[in-house]
Nucleic acid binder design. Structure first.
Lengths: 154, 154
DNA sequence: CATAACCTTGACGTAGGGGTAAAGCGTGGC
DNA sequence: GCCACGCTTTACCCCTACGTCAAGGTTATG
């Protein structure tokens, strides 16, 4: 322990910190949404902080946007490509390929942005309706209580 | 035809108008989310306008709020109770029971309101992040194009 | 070294449907 | 009256995204 600077995490801790189950983590790995983590000698999975972020990201795309894991996989792969692109500090290597990858990432993010915008709008619509109903119910409740005072329990 | 004033709908038309499949409509019925519709002599289902509204409502709760069908069932049942309550025009009958039902409906709507509010907030957070990323990507793209002009294809 | 606490793979179950088959209804044309 | 054609019926298996054991291996601790 304290072998390298990196604090490695076992699956239980990752599960706790991300709010998903261990089963889900193994499932994501199986489906290619999480890169296979390194293992201890005994076979235990060892995750890093980046994996935690990745899981949280996947969950947001699922919960907020309602995307399927297949769609999410495409997205995180495009985003991963982008990260590699950033890491490549050779400034001259194949610019057109870089442009292609960047364009792909832009497409993905734009798509996400469109979905968020649309859903956000529907949400605010729904919120308005719910507000209205709550006010109506509140009036009814007041009315019921008024009736109750005028004619107490039979 | 033109027998009664009510325009009854077959499953195909309901499917088209709600955007769900016929399979889904039968599934919802099976799960108790839709009250079993009346049938023609031959067994064909006959829906009414109210059923259409109901399906759309269920879908909003699913897509926007991400609720399970079991949760949604509870909600629509509470809302149904409320509609019956509204229809009972005997103003004196069992006020405390009415209050109980109304309170239940208020709970349901409040719950939905909470979820919407929470999700809406997360959405706007995500939207901000996506905006930021899009701007960054746009800068990178500009930079790549600048590099390309200075050193054309090798 | 024993024991608890953690982890492994594997298999089966469940929710929310999709697809398709094989059959039955309904209605207009002749 | 009968046929063709489209719509509907139930029934069955397939899929995704996991939940839930079961049976056993690993690691940390006294």
């Amino acid at each position: 322990m304290a072998d390298s600077e990196e604090a490695y995490l076992q699956i239980g801790e990752v599960a706790e910190r991300t709010g998903v189950t261990q089963r889900t983590l193994r499932f994501y790995e199986e489906k290619g949404l999480l890169r296979p983590p390194t293992r201890m000698d005994g076979g235990f999975r060892l995750y890093c902080e980046d994996d935690v972020r990745r899981v949280k990201h996947v969950r947001r795309l699922q919960d907020l946007l309602g995307l399927t894991l297949a769609e999410i996989k495409d997205m995180v792969e495009a985003e991963e490509m982008l990260r590699e692109l950033k890491a490549q500090y050779r400034p001259d290597a194949d610019v057109s390929e870089k442009k292609r990858q960047l364009r792909k990432a832009i497409d993905v993010v734009t798509h996400q942005h469109n979905i968020v915008s649309q859903k956000a709008e529907q949400m605010s619509e729904m919120k308005t309706q719910l507000d209205e109903r709550l006010r109506t119910f509140s009036r009814w409740m007041t009315e019921l209580e008024r009736v109750e005072r005028k004619a107490p329990v039979a």
